[in-house]
């Protein structure tokens, strides 16, 4: 074996060990609830817990709402910047990166100050409006990923010429966005959507401080009070995330003329 190839294999082996040993350890630990035998008892307990189903459902619904809102906000914005305001791109990129720089805890304290029940816009006054606030905060959190994914998708197609071609054929803005632009960045939008899903499903800080029954705080609660169940929950979370990644792969395969966005 050539030295260069050997080096490459060593890096791969190291990478696999680095990622899989903790995972295997967690998995193995999650099976040891019953003394002396491997069993899926921890999984059974977790899945039987009504709070598990309730929090996963809550977070899933919130994730889907976040995706719809994110796509509705980001696709037209990124499209318009590409088409008419290319000079604004650095500014918008900077704004979309802010949620990565500003910690979630700072954001959520800001929300609580601005939208508390004695403010002009008391969003935290009721459970439904707090859900709305949480959804908007998730849109902000997912913005760097969604924007980048969509922007990359838009850069891969000739936005301007496609727009002009559609215009010359009689199409107005809504038709252009829905029938020409969106289908051609579908894969990029899906990438952004799955990343958003993965972020929202495990988010803790915002949901906890806004006191909403999401999956993240539930994960933390179990982690603080149980031994084997948190390991089982971790494995389940990984499975959900990997399922998302798998879906990205399936949807990005064999779609003509389309490019996935940033992962």
């Amino acid at each position: 074996m050539k030295p260069r190839r050997l080096g490459a294999w060593l890096v791969i082996v190291f990478g696999v060990l680095y990622f899989f040993v903790p995972l295997l350890g967690t998995f193995e630990f999650s099976l040891r609830l019953l003394r002396g035998v491997y069993s899926v008892a921890a999984y059974r307990i977790v899945l039987a817990d009504p709070r598990f189903a309730a929090t996963v459902t809550y977070s899933t619904v919130l994730a889907l709402a976040t995706i719809v809102m994110g796509v509705a906000l980001v696709v037209p914005t990124a499209y318009w910047i590409q088409l008419r305001l290319p000079r604004m791109r650095p500014v918008v990129e900077f704004i979309t990166l802010l949620p990565l720089v500003i910690p979630a805890i700072v954001l959520v304290f800001g929300y609580l100050r601005i939208y508390n029940s004695s403010s002009a816009l008391p969003l935290t006054g009721s459970a439904r409006t707090t859900d709305l606030l949480l959804m908007f905060s998730y849109v902000t959190l997912a913005l760097p990923y969604m924007y980048r994914a969509v922007d990359n998708g838009l850069r891969a197609i000739d936005v301007r010429t496609l727009t002009e071609a559609a215009q010359s054929l009689g199409a107005g803005w809504s038709t252009i966005l829905l029938r020409v632009i969106l289908p051609n960045v579908r894969v990029a939008v899906l990438s952004g959507a799955f990343l958003t899903f993965a972020i929202v499903i495990g988010e803790f800080t915002m949901a906890s401080l806004l006191d909403r029954p999401a999956f993240g705080p539930y994960l933390q609660l179990i982690g603080a009070n149980r031994a084997y169940e948190p390991a089982a929950l971790s494995i389940i979370s990984f499975a959900i995330t990997w399922a998302c990644m798998g879906l990205i792969q399936i949807f990005t395969r064999g779609v003509p003329g389309q490019v996935a966005g940033a992962h």
Partner: peptide, 13 residues
Amino acid sequence: VGMVFQSYALFPN
């Protein structure tokens, strides 16, 4: 007005 572009501009989808 019908327009034909240098880059064809067919809708890929």
